[in-house]
Amino acid sequence: MSFRVKDEAGTSTVFLSGEIDLERSPAARKTLLDTLARKQALVVDLRDVSYIDSSGIASLVEAYQKARTSNLAFTLAEVGPPVMRVLSLARLDRVFPIRVGG
């Protein structure tokens, strides 16, 4: 199961969806890293993510670090309450550039 990716001029958007847990975060990680290989700004749209755990967060962190070393913009978009909750518990809500959904 893969995630939808939308490419626009200068920006790629990855739409993560469903439950990003230990089973599915490897796929999420691969999608994020593969998309970054296009050397475009990356937006991770989280509106359809109903659940994320530490392994999913780890995938986001890894992609963010990779984007920074590549000087690519990295933004979390449409962050809903379940994801926001975990980000704040992990003290990452002020690390990631976040575009709050709504």
Binding site: D53, S54, S55, I57, A58, S59, V61, E62, V86, L89, A90, R91, L92, V95
Partner: peptide, 13 residues
């Protein structure tokens, strides 16, 4: 918590 790296986060949670 200022150690921003994957792993170890689960136990914290």
């Amino acid at each position: 918590l200022d150690d921003v790296k994957p792993g170890g986060l689960g136990t914290h949670l």
